[in-house]
Design a protein around this nucleic acid. Structure first.
Lengths: 251, 251
DNA sequence: TCATGTGAAGGAATTCACAGCC
DNA sequence: GGCTGTGAATTCCTTCACATGA
């Protein structure tokens, strides 16, 4: 199921295909094809078929793909059919925007705790979206859950009582490394870092990076830096000829 | 200066190197090396030297790089030594977080207009950071500028009076394509799309995508989708062996 | 006949080894 | 001696052509 050698870019494209399948479902399309997916995903059809082939055979030769089947399979492959308990560290403007961002809860990302160090934020009540229990049979309904912002120092005690899969880091850049360290010490194994800096997979003590430590060994870090997006846009506006050409939309 | 065939990943890495050079400057380091940059950027030293070589020769053999020189050259190469006038379309929670996000104004991204369609937002005053005029000699000082949120329908009139280089799109997903169309019709040539959907470089009329049109011909679009980050993290937490191994930190 | 699935070809990006220069 | 700069080698990813099966 998970043979080695899958390009990381392929994972990002699979995520895109899944989003497109949801669009197609909303448009009440029952079937689709590699060519149709390719057009919406802005890649070519070879790429779509190759990406899918890394994980299995989901189509019918001569026919194409059944939207609901491919959607279900990609959801499973990407690990989005289970639920992920998430804490947000850093509840300034960005953290609050993330907490309310529509779409996260649809994928079983469930916010269970909110943390910060600012005294004016501690104790503040925040309504986060919560998916209804899937077994309640209420379908697409969402309800809100009220959380209050806690001090980061209580994170370890929190995770001791409540399983936490991921931490979303939305603190100021200069605090990103130490906040990440707090997450790891609390046993959180996945970090989504929004700060424009790279988290080093090791402790920082007295301003100096140490050797990689055991507690970081199996921690996964992903970075989302939208300043990079701004700067990439600036570069390619000045150098449009360096941008990748449109893929030939072939069979 | 802009020979063909520069990997797009190299541009992202150059942006990272520039950020690291700023860190080094804050730490008052005068010189650095490809190895030191590589360690902080989590790539190997070959990669750093190759990436820099796409744009010129910035070091001294046997010595390394002068931090201030390399920073200046990368700033120029990346197009960050000029100023970019930006409008934000979509001033909900995410748009407001972007407007206040520290770091953007340091790179000469200057917010000149804020737009939305929600009547409860129109007219709202928002303080955005503004870089002081570089010729005023006031150095690192920043001041705030007060903007009021305008209706998207007045965007074209706005751009007719005020040059706008980029639009940052922070509207709900289902409005992203039409808001992008509004930006393009107003003559904006660069779009940074925060919505979790791909902007199609063509008009959408009556719910159907048309042929690519002239007005889109020289428009550059970059996407920043943090739901992708969440989903990538979920996938790699379930499949850690598929994540790229640490680069061998070699000379 | 159609569109998928896949081994093979091709191209691109990274890694390497070393020449070049302080 | 030391670190950069760069052609060459290698690895990886994408594109292709076609065999496969509905």
């Amino acid at each position: 199921m998970t043979a080695p050698g899958i390009p990381t870019a392929a994972i990002s494209r699979l995520i895109t295909y899944l989003r497109i399948l949801e669009e197609l479902e909303r448009e009440e399309r029952l079937t689709t094809s590699s060519g149709a997916l390719a057009e919406r995903a802005q890649v070519n059809a070879f790429q779509v078929r190759k990406d899918l082939a890394y994980f299995g055979r989901f189509g019918t030769r001569g026919m194409g793909y059944t939207v609901s089947v491919l959607k279900r399979e990609l959801t499973r492959v990407l690990g989005l059919n289970r639920s992920w308990n998430v804490v947000i560290v850093g509840m300034g403007r960005l953290g609050q925007a993330i907490a309310h961002y529509p779409g996260a809860s649809e994928y079983q990302f469930s916010y269970v705790g909110l943390f910060d160090v600012r005294s004016d934020l501690i104790g503040l009540q925040v309504d986060v979206p919560a998916r209804r229990d899937l077994h309640s049979g209420l379908g697409q309904g969402f309800q809100a859950r009220t959380l209050h912002i806690q001090h980061i120092d209580s994170l370890a005690a929190f995770t001791a009582q409540q399983p936490v899969d991921m931490g979303f880091l939305a603190v100021p850049t200069e605090h990103a490394q130490s906040a990440a360290q707090s997450l790891v010490e609390a046993g959180v194994k996945g970090i989504l870092n929004f700060a424009p800096t790279l988290i080093q997979p090791r402790a920082k003590e007295g301003g100096h990076l140490q050797e990689i430590s055991d507690e970081w060994r199996d921690v996964m870090v992903e970075n989302v830096d939208f300043l990079v997006g701004m700067k990439r846009l600036a570069f390619y506006m000045l150098n449009p000829q360096l941008n990748e050409p449109d893929p030939e939309e072939k069979t």
